[in-house]
Design a protein around this nucleic acid. Structure first.
Lengths: 235, 235
DNA sequence: GCCCGCCTTTAAGTATGACTTTTACGTCAC
DNA sequence: GTGACGTAAAAGTCATACTTAAAGGCGGGC
């Protein structure tokens, strides 16, 4: 996840405490927070608390009502596509569940994105793609998982961007977060699956020659692999 | 789109003016807004403006920097999955573009969601599904487009919810917005495509009997139809 | 005894003025 | 021309006073 929201203001600091706490379930839905209580707890002024609350409200994590206070909303109402919410949940206790959701989303989106990329990708993007695929090949053996990850993330980011769909493009961070999670929680001694590496190379090639169906099918294989890994990764 | 954000506070009213204006491109990226200027324009206190700005900032529509002001961010950085941003853009000048993006997203997500629904749907959800499919059949002829729309939206909402994936479930509003847009901008005299109606009935059936592949394939046909309509709808 | 409406009280919302902090930009010396 | 420095501008923070909505209790009417 990108560094979005690690801002410097006081309100940002309050947010970085309350957000994770709420998404972690430390304040179950229905919990009531009062502003003056928070004011005291964080030793900041009312202004700061209110601004933090306003942001949490815009994420649909809480609702603020007069004469009642700030109540935590039920999980189903959260804006689960907010990058900050995603980041917080990935860092919290329902990380496995979150990783599953995101991987399923990937498996739906990426193949279609790859198909579109085959139609729309610019020469420059095609070049980037092959470059990163090559990079993956080069780093796929001999405990270079971190270097491999960089290429893997970049590869998928380019595919999503090349799809020409802004909604897809904005999922680059999500995919990056999933891949990072995979690498850092997997058995760090195992080199990446050679079959997966080959698939990436083939996708790059399919996109380059404009074979949308093939790009889509190959990417579907990649995401199927990710889904299969999931049972080990997020039980 | 749900009524999310039509709040009653003053800051909400400021937001409902600035948000649409920014997403409509009235303040091109790089534009600088100063708080005291806005204060004056909206005839409200600093507090109110600051809270509105904080929300816009959390949507990545603007960035606030000391000694500079509040600058409008480039489009690529916006949180395009924020329901309010989606709503604003659908109401603005790049509605066609937005409709395209969302329909492509639909075409990626819904088939996979239908496949999952076939595996996970509860008996109650299956019942709802057939009910709404029947409702679509019943209202598919004789200028009952509004009634048809209600069933159509409900149908897709149930499929997304039944997928068991919270990320998918949260796209219910998006799909509803797209369907609404379709109905209200289409030739209002044309009854829905009978083939599409049949497909919905068949999807309900496939989900009921747990045939994931069939549910997915049929839904892919539905979304392909939606994509085809797009050229007429959003040129 | 029960229901409806008023009234109190509480907590969020708004307004304002004073003060702090960051930082872009212009100036001046080298 | 370059670099250090100082100034000022605008956001950020704080404290306080006041306004508004509404939850929950109180009392009167039925």
């Amino acid at each position: 996840m990108e560094n979005q929201g690690a801002g410097q203001g006081l309100h940002a600091r309050v947010l970085e405490t309350l957000g994770p706490a709420i998404t972690a379930g430390e304040y179950p839905p229905g919990t009531i927070l009062r502003t003056d209580e928070l004011e005291e707890r964080f030793e900041v002024s009312r202004t700061v608390i209110r601004e933090a609350i306003r942001v949490l409200e815009s994420m649909h994590l809480v609702a603020s009502r007069r004469r009642v206070g700030v109540t935590v909303r039920p999980t189903e109402e959260w804006n689960v596509y907010d990058p900050r919410v995603i980041g917080w949940r990935l860092a919290g206790p329902d990380r496995p569940r979150q990783l599953r959701s995101l991987t399923v989303l990937r498996s739906a989106v990426e193949p279609v994105a790859a198909g579109l990329a085959a139609r729309h990708a610019s020469p420059a993007q095609c070049a980037e793609l092959t470059e990163h695929a090559m990079g993956m090949v080069a780093t796929s053996r001999g405990q270079q998982l971190d270097a491999y990850l960089v290429h893997d993330m970049a590869f998928h980011r380019v595919v999503l961007a090349a799809s020409g769909n802004e909604m897809f493009a904005r999922l680059g961070d999500v995919v990056a977060a999933v891949l990072t999670g995979r690498t850092h929680h997997h058995v760090m001694f195992t080199d990446p699956d050679p079959a997966a590496v080959t698939l990436h190379v083939q996708v790059a090639e399919a996109v380059r020659v404009g074979d949308a169906d093939r790009a889509e099918a190959l990417t579907r294989e990649i995401t199927a692999g990710a889904m299969a890994e999931l049972d080990v990764l997020a039980p």
